[in-house]
Design a protein around this nucleic acid. Structure first.
Lengths: 191, 191
DNA sequence: CGCGTAATTGAAAAGTATCAACACTGGTGG
DNA sequence: CCACCAGTGTTGATACTTTTCAATTACGCG
């Protein structure tokens, strides 16, 4: 549920450690800080070094849909870079967060000159697509309780790590409905 | 709604026309034929030359969720290639369909040796992610009628081109609910 | 203790699914 | 030319699920 990308993190860690280039800068965020605003033009690709962030979209009515929770090694901002477009989602820190940033030019340079990085980015994009495909089909095909149970199995510390409204917005239901499902599952001794 | 990718189609068309290589083969399907089965191991990347296909996922109960409708130039099977994984979705022709196929080895060779192709694939993946992000947040944040209206605006020939059950499975609702929404929108003179 | 934030609950309203019946359309064969 | 059939689309009634909204409780911390 909180996706990670260890191979990308390792790779970037090595490049960042190599002081002969200054491709990569590092930035710190305390919890609940906006890393990227929805509708921004962005000039950097971001990769999470440590911590957790949420990636979410707000509509005209102020309703929120959480796309993903980002963990270590997850890359973001790359979509907008390729499409030369404004950000679709906002990204906000949920814990203390350390982020690697790579400028547009350096990102393209790395992509062209480093086949390993190129492959890692392709794989990261593919993983995002697969994740979304499965997540969304589940959320449409299953009732809330089933989805919640799935989540809890994949990520047992769910309720300790993630606040209720976030879980609700991730499942695409109201907090009330989430609570009803939790209660019902507890009564059935399923969680 | 039916995504296309003209720049990729043009590029592939040129390579296919160049008879000095035999990277790319071409295949024909009549309507309602399975191009890729859910759970397959696949050894080819596919790109649509002409026609429309649907990409969908079936769960244990036989319920269907349509991920996307593929139009000209859309690439598929690449996700599974990068992840060395089984197909998540099935792909089925909705019209007469012509498909370019590229073997795993040739696909990787092209990716490595042809920066333009590499860029096109990165962009195609990014476009898929963006599409899914917007589509799914809409479908969670809006009621059926709003989503249907959106669809109809983006794609006026909706009802002529796509069968009711497919529209319903794309929106993630039953046919009954879809019909109720259509009727209601017609009464309001919105479609 | 008291305050602010987060979590929980109840009741009514709205939305959606289920199931079963009915209508329309374009062939096909008697 | 009509009867029939299969596939597709439409509708009604009811049950179920989810949201809405407002009120209540629990928790952490200065």
């Amino acid at each position: 549920m909180i996706r990670i990308n260890r191979e990308l993190l390792d790779f970037i860690g090595k490049i960042a450690a190599d002081e002969s280039n200054n491709f990569i800068s590092q930035h710190n965020f305390s919890p609940k800080k906006i890393v990227i605003e929805q509708g921004d033009k962005i000039e950097f690709v971001h990769i999470i070094k440590s911590g957790i962030a949420k990636c979410y979209l707000t509509n005209e009515d102020g309703n929120i849909f959480i796309q993903e929770f980002f963990g270590e090694g997850v890359i973001f901002g790359e979509i907008e870079m390729f499409n030369e477009d404004e950000t679709v989602c906002a990204v906000e820190s949920m814990t203390d967060l350390v982020i690697y940033k790579i400028s547009r030019n350096n990102f393209y340079k790395l992509l062209e000159e480093n086949p390993q990085f190129n492959r890692l980015v392709l794989r990261a994009l593919a993983a995002k697509i697969k994740f979304k495909a499965i997540r969304y089909s589940n959320s449409h095909l299953n009732p809330i309780e089933t989805n919640l149970l799935l989540l809890k199995k994949q990520f047992p510390e769910l309720f300790k790590t993630i606040a209720k409204p976030d879980i609700a917005n991730y499942l695409g239901v109201t907090e009330r409905s989430l609570n009803r499902s939790i209660k019902s599952l507890r009564e059935k001794k399923l969680i």
